[in-house]
Computed example of a mutant assay.
Amino acid sequence: MDKIAVLIPCYNEEKTVEKVVRDFRAVLPEAVIYVYDNNSSDRTVQLAEAAGAVVRHEYSQGKGNVLRRMFREIDAECYILVDGDDTYPAESAPEMCRLVLEHQADMVVGDRLSSTYFTENKRPFHNFGNSLVRLSINCLFGAKIQDIMTGYRAFSFAFVKTFPVLSRGFEIETEMSIHAVQRNMQVENVVIEYRDRPEGSVSKLNTYSDGAKVLGTILKLYKNYRPFGFFTVIAVVLALISLLFMMPVLTEYFVTGLVPRFPTLIVCGFVMIAALMLFVAGVILSSLLGKDKRDFEFRLQEAERWKQDAMQH
């Protein structure tokens, strides 16, 4: 088991990967630095090897797929995840590692938004999107994470070995943040100095399509982790619609004793039944979620025993 593993997912980062590897070797000389290449067509692999990194490959395209491979293959007491585009300062890594190794943090977030991100980043829709995602998750899940979409994080062994990677692309950061909050893991924020990509380095993030995937991921995870709230909101909306259209029919019945709009009454009745079924589904799924949380605590204990056994051998 490594003491510290620096994980760098890369796709066509020949402009910056060598500098990133050398910077992290300088501040974390005891760390093993892994570069996971994701089908690069430039000199990313050769430059990473020349800088002293251990290079491995993931052939399924997408950052989520790369992280799945990393988390599956590497055992370490502390993991540092950083992009290979040289936008994050290596100087913050020792403090992030300290919080994991000495302060028992499960995830440390490199917070760009509290420092230089909005001035350094030249893409206004990215600025808006990051603020929107942070507000959405902190409100929906009761979190206090300052930067949801950052690619600079530190993790404990327990987090990495119990985190189910479901996303394939850039929405993986959102998934990790929500998982940590929902599973009551210790999350710390470290303010970092963000810098924009150097000239000639191109972002792989598509503002609109990847932004839509991130929002879809938030909605999906809210349904999975907060089923009572999710289905209750839908049930209330359907019930209000049913009552809105049913009231004139009932009023006319009480006045005249007639029901001239019988189809409306039938449809409203079915809509109300659907609302009640959704509410019951939310109650049932919420109960199942409680069992899932208990099972997860046992998985955390198993991961800790696995870690102790690996360190002893």
Rank of each mutant, 00 (worst) to 15 (best):
A310G: 09
V21E: 04
R69N: 13
E188S: 03
I266L: 14
A90S: 14
Q46S: 12
F262C: 00
V82S: 08
A90G: 06
G211D: 01
K293D: 09
A212S: 10
I284D: 01
V20T: 03
T119R: 14
V187E: 00
P260C: 03
P248T: 04
L238Q: 08
G200H: 03
M107F: 01
A281D: 04
E102F: 03
E297V: 08
K307Y: 08
Q186N: 08
D292V: 02
F170M: 07
L205D: 03
K223D: 13
G64R: 04
Q46Y: 06
D83Y: 02
L166S: 14
S40C: 10
R25D: 10
S177L: 00
T207I: 09
A90D: 10
Q146M: 14
G269C: 06
M311S: 09
S114W: 01
D86T: 00
E252D: 06
F24Y: 15
G129V: 04
I145D: 02
S92C: 09
V233K: 11
L132T: 12
T116S: 15
I178Y: 02
S60F: 11
Q182D: 14
K220D: 14
T150S: 14
L113V: 11
Y59D: 14
E193K: 15
Q301P: 01
F270M: 12
L289H: 10
D23C: 06
C97V: 15
E77I: 07
S131F: 13
R25F: 03
Q61E: 10
T162W: 03
G62D: 06
V233P: 00
V190S: 01
M149D: 05
V6I: 12
R98F: 12
D42S: 11
T119G: 11
I266F: 12
V108K: 03
A51P: 07
S115V: 11
G110Y: 09
I74N: 07
I178H: 02
L7M: 11
V54C: 05
F279R: 12
Y79H: 07
A26R: 15
M176K: 12
K307C: 06
E188V: 03
P124Y: 08
R299H: 09
I234M: 10
F163S: 09
F71A: 05
G62L: 03
A143L: 08
I80P: 05
K144W: 02
L276A: 15
E173N: 13
I192D: 03
